[in-house]
Write a protein that binds this DNA or RNA. Sequence first.
DNA 1: TCTGCTAACATATACACAGG
DNA 2: CCTGTGTATATGTTAGCAGA
Length: 369
Amino acid sequence: MSKPGENIYKRKDGRWEGRYIKNRKDDGTIQYGYIYQRTYNAVKEQLILMKSLYYHEYHSLNSNYTGNLQQWGIFWLSNVKEKVKLSTYTSYRNKLYQHIFPEIGQIQLKQVSAQHIENLIICLEAKLSRSSIRVILQVLKTCMKEAVKQGILFDNPCLKVSMPMPNSKKVRSLTIDEESNLQKYSRNHPKGLPILLALQTGLRIGEICGLKWEDIDFYANVLNVSRTIQRLPTFEPNEKKRTKIVEQLPKSNNSMRIIPISNSIRVELLRLKELTESQYVFGTKGPIEPRLITYWFKKIISELGIYDVCFHSLRHTFATRCLEKGVTIATISELLGHHSIKLTLDTYINTFLSEKREAIKLIDYDLRN
DNA sequence: TCTGCTAACATATACACAGG
DNA sequence: CCTGTGTATATGTTAGCAGA
């Protein structure tokens, strides 16, 4: 009955509660007004009334904004830049300039309607996957939410539009055979060490690139994950284009972690250390680019005849092997640097279980025949 | 007041094409 | 063989709702 964004809720006592924005404090936070009725529809009706009642008062604050969506979006971006990581900012910027501004950027901010957004979705569906469209809409939603907070808009039209459901496909793990082939091959390949490292530690590609010798403790045989490398487009629109290698803290605070290394990896690392002068484990002057690791990975993979895997699959493979060997989920989660085991379970373990289920089905079939 | 769950928010990796 | 650019999509964390 009640939909998200409506601010109508069923209460424990059986009544329906509706909220409307009565006022805003100086810092922009909302002060709600409340109404109660016996039925959902009664609340909905009265809510429209209350909203229109308070509309003028609080709109007079900022109703003089006359910019279009694009102008607002650019302003919002410049604010958001301070608050998020560079990779996030560039991703937001790309979505706005690439998909949102060309379609609806010229519409007056205050005129943007749910219908406009629905049209945008239809337009995007022709070229993008649903999960990408979701991300784009999310950015738009957040952007317009800020306009609401600042009192320019009364409500956020994005909330009236239902998001397309995601259709993401899962990354698969390597099978045991594939993995052992890859291990053997990588051991004898000059560019194979990052692959071995990923298989044995579950590190992300950016974390491998960021490794410095000072992060490895050869006495305790542990490795300290404390930075990541990415290449990001750092230019602003209309500026001269330039991408840059960016060194940052890992994906999240939880990603800062200490991981034990096996003896075979230790030996390989020590051997490499003798040969290089760089402070980075991989890469000659600065850190190696993630893409270069991918490049070699793809090459090796195709020589071995392994298909539909990407470098990140090694992380999945690591998790799967740990699970098969009886490592607890909590430990796996910690090694991967996850904040909670939920993600570990959803992203990495479920695929394993479904593979297992398939295997059992096969066995079952064999027995019956 | 607690808690499990999902959607929203945030940040990473993947992949394609061009060129030195 | 490696680097630049451009863009799509997967992974990871947190906020907040609904149910108890």
